[in-house]
Write a protein that binds this DNA or RNA. Structure first.
Length: 641
RNA sequence: GGUCCCGUAGCUCAACGGAUAGAGCAACUGCCUUCUAAGCAGUAGGUUACAGGUUCGAGCCCUGUCGGGAUCACCA
């Protein structure tokens, strides 16, 4: 540090990017260049070394002149001068020595730097000539992303939609950031819940199938789950009238407790101790665990129906998985780790034989990791699957996309794995997202307010079709169908992804998804405009080689270029923070800048051939970047709107 | 009660500790005889829940208070 300012060595990164021809300094690294040169200037002027990363560079606000602003407050103390004086001195030095500076001005403690026009041309050229602009080189490191993770007793709902969209976009972003991403889901295919569906089908199904009834398999199986709950409720209500129930009520009711409240509270106990259906379900679960062939056959049949249904929904959402894990394969895992943890002294055994971990010093409680009877609990299984996945893929990072209800569970799981010394423990991340609520509050199965994923998608498609028809665009034929699908899903996806994952979000199915304003279609529309221009270039064979001769750059054009420059760092930030909303909001900003540019400045009808060439090139760069950014969110561009 | 998350315009959301807190929706005004008006421009809307503190500078960091949510199962 502090070796000469603007010496030969520096020339490489600052300026001499000669290979591209007409450029004289690197465009994309302008922030680092400014950081370094401002730091060097401060050091030269005031004799104190300054770390370049301490220099803060922001885009200049639109109401001031200049392109980028250096924040000078941190240096006024060591300079022993006013912020204005520091700005003037640093600005003067930069303008004299740095080849890329056109001018400067100082407002309060901000040094606004105006860049020469060659900088902007260089920047545009870099964006256009970089293959897959925004993608980082491969790191040779694997990351696993677990998302969706449904139960097989009911269809996917609104919450799964947010989960899937987050999981998918997060995977895409990590991929763009250079990781090799392995996308997995863990399917909860066993347990009491699916047995309820199985039993109801066995008793009341009369051999019906999804095919015979013409409904999706997941809905078909889900309907039997609901049927079971209904029959069970009927049985319960009948039971409440029996002498046995009356006696229990009189004996156990708390003072002030109403009959209704008492029986509501008693339901689980009743199901386990008195219910005939309950006994049958438990019996079925036992037969399943014992490997009874008939039970297993039924179980496979019903789950396969569900998987067919899930596949259809996943296809609509545009999400895929590299591997499925099934709870039926993993629910016994983790016991070896418990044994190991006992030996390491990470776990301890209580008198009854149950095994625990004490996390009180980490701000958590004591937690059971193995029951007294030697059977696993939820967290045992998660420890086991974590290790299995690490063996399967060697991922040192694993991301769990799971709703924030389970924050505590994952905090405990990760801390436990850390203490066990698992090699991937520091790379575990819970991508916790807030529940999707309806305007009326939380979705409740019992109240029938659950928004079904397939219904939701159908509704959004219907709305998009309506809008397309209203604008007089074609709605018939495969191409129109595909455009409608892209617009509809673009709207839905953008709506859900643009919100920070951690926030709870309110979703109004009535108004469903807007197609105007800060939306997916707004972004798609800007791309469609560009797409139209690109097609004209083809047809009319326009000469774009004079773009660099364009001199009179407009503010709208600079704004676009500034936004383009940010794209790679936005992708990196989104990957580091596991937060796709950054990319969504960036896409909106870029589209907004483009719409303004389009409105204010003629492209094809630009005043000069150079201006036209430049604006077409600029449009192309924006189009590519928009498409790339939306691709990271799983949003596809329609050919026309 | 303990722990964690969230409180920003009527609504839905932004804002690496930086300049006068920004967008969209809803409301009101304008702009299609020039590349698609799913667009653009404008008006109005704010004590960033509240009170202190840290510093050149706080919506953001710290402390407390008040509201909302989640969780604190040998359920998954």
């Amino acid at each position: 540090m502090g070796a000469g300012l603007w010496g030969r060595d520096d020339c490489r990164d600052v300026a001499c990017n000669v290979s591209t021809g007409w450029g004289t300094f690197a465009g994309m690294d302008i922030l680092r260049t400014l950081q370094r040169d401002v730091a060097a200037a401060v050091e030269r002027l005031y004799g104190e070394p300054v770390a370049p990363e301490k220099v803060q560079i922001n885009p200049t606000l639109p109401e001031f002149t200049g392109d980028y602003a250096a924040v000078l407050f941190p240096f006024v103390k060591l300079a022993r001068k006013s912020p204005e004086a520091v700005g003037a001195e640093v600005g003067e030095l930069l303008q004299r020595e740095a080849p890329y500076v056109k001018g400067y001005n100082v407002v309060k403690g901000f040094l606004n730097i105006e860049l020469k026009e060659t900088f902007w041309h260089e920047l545009l050229q870099e964006v256009l000539s970089t293959p897959h602009y925004g993608r980082q080189p491969r790191r040779g490191e694997r990351v696993m992303v677990e998302y969706s993770s449904p139960n097989t007793n009911k269809p996917l709902h609104l919450g799964h939609v947010r989960n899937c969209l987050l999981g998918w976009s997060c995977s895409q972003i990590l991929d763009a950031a250079g990781y090799d991403v392995v996308k997995v889901q863990i399917i909860n295919d066993r347990g009491v819940a699916i047995c309820k569906s199985m039993l109801a089908w066995q008793k009341f199904g009369e051999g019906r199938t999804p095919q015979s009834e013409g409904i999706k398999g997941d809905h078909f199986v889900g309907d039997y789950y609901v049927l079971f709950e209904r029959k069970s409720q009927e049985e319960y209500e009948a039971w409440q009238q029996t002498p046995e129930a009356r006696a229990l009520y009189e004996a156990r009711r708390k003072p002030e407790q109403s009959e209704k409240d008492f029986f509501k509270e008693y339901k689980n106990r009743w199901f386990n101790e008195h219910s005939r259906l309950g006994a049958e379900v438990r019996d079925m679960l036992l037969r399943w665990e014992a490997g009874d062939p008939d039970t297993l056959a039924l179980w496979r049949q019903m789950n396969n129906w569900v998987y067919e249904g899930f596949e259809a929904t996943y296809a609509q959402l545009g999400v895929r998985f590299d591997k499925n894990y099934y709870e039926s394969d993993t629910y016994l895992l983790g016991k070896d780790i418990v044994e190991e943890g006992l030996q390491k002294g990470v776990f301890f055994k209580k008198e009854d034989g149950s095994v625990w971990i004490d996390l009180t010093d980490a701000g958590h409680d004591q937690k059971v990791v193995l029951r007294a009877d030697g059977t696993s609990v939820y967290i045992t299984q998660d420890m086991g699957t974590a290790r299995m996945r690490y063996r399967d893929f060697g991922c040192k990072r694993m991301v769990y996309v799971v709703a924030d209800e389970q924050n505590y569970h994952f905090a405990v799981l990760f801390e436990t794995l850390r203490r066990l010394g698992e090699p991937y423990a520091d790379g575990l991340y819970h991508l916790s997202y807030g529940l999707v609520e309806l305007p009326t509050g939380r979705m409740k199965t019992r109240e029938g307010t659950v928004v079904d994923a397939d219904d939701l998608i159908a509704e959004v498609l219907r709305l998009a079709r309506e809008q397309v028809a209203e604008r007089g665009s074609p709605t018939e034929g495969p191409e129109a169908e595909e455009n409608i699908r892209r617009i509809a899903m673009g709207a839905l996806k953008f709506f859900m992804i643009r919100v920070h994952p951690k926030r709870r979000m309110v979703f109004n199915p009535e108004e469903s998804v807007d197609l105007q304003g800060q939306t997916g279609p707004y972004i798609q529309y800007s791309w469609v405009r560009i797409h139209g221009l690109m097609q004209r270039i083809e047809h009319e064979s326009i000469d774009l080689s004079t773009a660099h001769q364009y001199t009179d750059l407009q503010p709208q054009e600079k704004e676009l270029l500034k936004a383009l420059r940010e794209y790679p760092s936005v992708v990196l930030t989104a990957a580091q923070e596991y937060d796709p909303s950054h990319v969504a909001n960036y896409g909106y900003q870029l589209a907004k800048n483009y719409h303004r540019f389009w409105h204010d400045l003629p492209v094809f009808n630009a005043p000069t051939p150079e201006a036209r060439a430049f604006r077409l090139q600029l449009s192309r760069a924006v189009g590519q970047t928009l498409q790339s950014a939306m691709h990271l969110l799983g949003i596809e561009m329609p050919q026309r709107m």
